[in-house]
Design a binder for these strands. Structure first.
Lengths: 127, 127
DNA sequence: GTAACACCTGGAGTTGACTCCAAGTCAAGG
DNA sequence: CCTTGACTTGGAGTCAACTCCAGGTGTTAC
């Protein structure tokens, strides 16, 4: 699969895909003889993983570290697990914050809605 | 309440508090005669609101727009409600993405955990 | 009254994560 | 063979959101 297709499939620009590779987020993608990227199944699974993690704002640095450990094989499993656990905990914390914000937003929207209703009533009475 | 105390109360640096004021996120804080910030109850409620919204990553630009509308009074209620509704919807979408990521993280952690267990078993058998 | 310290301002610098660009290479159609 | 258009690289530029700094003023403890 060439870069253009991967870009469309995941909604990630080709520039970003190349950038991810450059910084080590996706270890060197397979190439054709002449050096053009030709994403393998594995490469695509990696892109998907990164897209998903970035979608939840896991920092690129952490993902780079994680990917490097994956490359190093089974000896790093314990460390990798720790990284994922920490990221998961932070994610849970962020989601809790967001839930609080969501509640406040919903509350404010409700207040606005009833204010708008009041205004409409007043107009009706004045008519 | 002076800036230092507000900073500690909310865990926002004084630089950030001044920055928020500068860009219009918190309309001009009350001052002492000599020009030193002295946050009123209202100012503090505003800081709290902004902190909460920023905690859920609502963009500063949107908050600036919202705050400007609040300043303009009741005529802008409808617009404000729309802004909040849109932000709420985006927040819900982001939380859904994060939930997916969380599920994957949990799954991966489980897989790692069972791999570690297997390794331990092997060691026991070899003993 | 003076030293030490918190506060002020405008503006420059930093960080993370892209995003764009120039200059060059390759592959397919006519 | 030559053009057209997608691909390559390294490096520079951009953007949001801070964060830091220099140079100046205010305020409190001794």
């Amino acid at each position: 699969m060439k870069i253009q297709e991967v870009s469309e499939k995941f909604g990630i620009s080709t520039d970003t895909l190349r950038y991810y590779e450059r910084v080590g987020l996706i270890p060197s993608v397979t190439r054709t003889g002449s050096g053009i990227r030709d994403y393998s199944e594995l490469d695509i699974r990696r892109v998907e993983f990164v897209k998903c993690m970035r979608g939840a704002s896991l920092p690129i640095e952490v993902l780079i570290e994680y990917m490097a450990l994956v490359q190093q094989g089974d000896a790093t499993i314990e460390t990798r697990k720790e990284i994922l656990r920490e990221q998961r905990d932070q994610l849970i914390a962020r989601m809790a914050e967001m839930q609080k914000t969501l509640d406040i937003l919903n509350h404010k929207i409700q207040v606005y809605e009833s204010k708008i209703l009041e205004k409409e009533k007043k107009i009706k009475i004045e008519e």
